[in-house]
Design a protein around this nucleic acid. Structure first.
Lengths: 246, 246
DNA sequence: CACGTGACCAAATTTCTAAACTGGTCATAA
DNA sequence: TTATGACCAGTTTAGAAATTTGGTCACGTG
């Protein structure tokens, strides 16, 4: 690659340094929020933990809440990458239940996102009750509908249920699985893997059509799905990177 | 029936009066709790609404919490009666999914129990966080396991899933259906009947075996189940009545 | 005498306010 | 030009004071 002129090089190095610093700040925020909860994590603590001055944080984000939104975004992107990886490696990755198996599995490893989805008030504090939380859920449901429509078109899921019913029950199964965990008596708890498999089995039986697609067909569908997912991730990523550079 | 002697008659009339008064107090408590929530419903208001003195309430129950427990018990008994009625009238009443259809349907009409199950903090306030709530859930799950075992023995539900997984997913489906309702965007909400049918469909597909029992077999199973249910209700009822008489 | 009642009290809850903290800014330093 | 922490207004917290409430019981009533 041709070398850029002096000024551009310098800007790039600086931009990269900024970016690294932004990540350091987000790391600090993540650690503190998981340890103390959102409400009790203040900007000064984050700055100290990240080894920067408080003012520096405001060079990256306009408000504390914006910083937290960036953290969530980063977490979602990391999770999406995990998810993409697994789907692309799984021959059955195009089926609804396989997607959910990986989704549950991958989400289990992200306590911050788990808390966000479950609106865990201990961790998220006021953030859980803010607009963002509901908006995120609605957005999630909307994204959902698009790929569900896609699977319906390919006959991989039942079409004798309305989209409304299907989205509702899909949400209910996944949310229900998470939500009841803390209420279950000890002898009825499941490991993360058991839960992922159980959700997958339930989704398959209750929402997929009987029809089993050929390996070729599955690959085509999986490919198209991953394309779509990639586009979404890229867009989100670009937006996130832009945010980081202020 | 032979007439009882004078004293007994008098005691009976009094007891019946007491019982009626107890119900009046519970009615008042139910109305106030639904209107203002548990925390903001005090004993004096209940007494006034029921048209009795405050001290009278303590002739029936030792504490405010005991009064509320009695109210819940009464509500559960009423719901159980509803449920029994529907199951006994439905030829498919012995199947798991039919039970759940009626269960959901019947529970929807009981806001107090709905709040208890959902631990709706607005209505239940501190009561939701008390021992009683968790205990009730665990008890519910335990009762569950008994009749699930029964259905497994008759091959009406899958046996290739462990009880643990089955109970977990059954709880997840039902709880999930209730819990997500308030988070759903408007265009995705379902009516109570739609939800009951959807839950039934999901339970059938994901937890029942393919095997369909004959009408005769179903009736036998249904009969046995109702016997068991009746015994449970009678026991609970006796206990409740005894409580009312102080 | 037996039952019902509301005044009464200790304990819990709410309200109020002074003190402490924190998100965000910006003059200053590097 | 970039980073910082002292600074300030607005918010949160602590805890004292005031109010409310669960539960008791001496008294009134039929």
């Amino acid at each position: 690659m041709a070398p850029k002129k002096q000024e551009s090089n310098s800007q790039q190095r600086e931009a990269s340094g900024r970016r690294e610093r932004a990540h350091r700040i987000l790391d600090a925020a993540a650690a503190l929020i998981l340890r103390w909860g959102y409400d009790k994590t203040n900007v000064e603590d984050i700055a100290r933990q990240a080894g920067v001055g408080k003012g520096t944080i405001y060079l990256h984000w306009k408000t504390r809440e914006e910083l937290f939104r960036a953290l969530i975004k980063r977490e979602q992107l990391a999770m999406a990458a995990d998810f993409k990886q697994r789907i692309s490696e799984d021959p059955a990755g195009a089926t609804l239940h396989t997607m959910y198996k990986h989704y549950v599995s991958v989400l289990m490893k992200r306590p911050l996102l788990k808390a966000l989805i479950l609106r865990d008030t201990d961790v998220l504090g006021k953030f859980a009750h803010s607009e963002h939380s509901s908006a995120a859920f609605i957005e999630r449901v909307a994204g959902f509908k698009i790929y569900l429509e896609f699977l319906r078109e390919h006959g991989l899921v039942r079409t004798d249920l309305s989209m409304r019913e299907q989205v509702y029950m899909l949400s209910a199964i996944v949310m229900g699985s998470y939500l009841i965990a803390p209420w279950m008596p000890d002898e009825l708890t499941l490991t993360d893997e058991e839960l992922a498999d159980l959700v997958a089995d339930t989704v398959q039986r209750s929402l997929e059509s009987g029809r089993s697609a050929s390996a070729d067909e599955l690959q085509v569908i999986s490919h198209t799905f991953l394309e779509q997912l990639n586009r979404g991730i890229a867009l989100y990523e670009a937006q996130f990177q832009h945010d980081l550079d202020s």
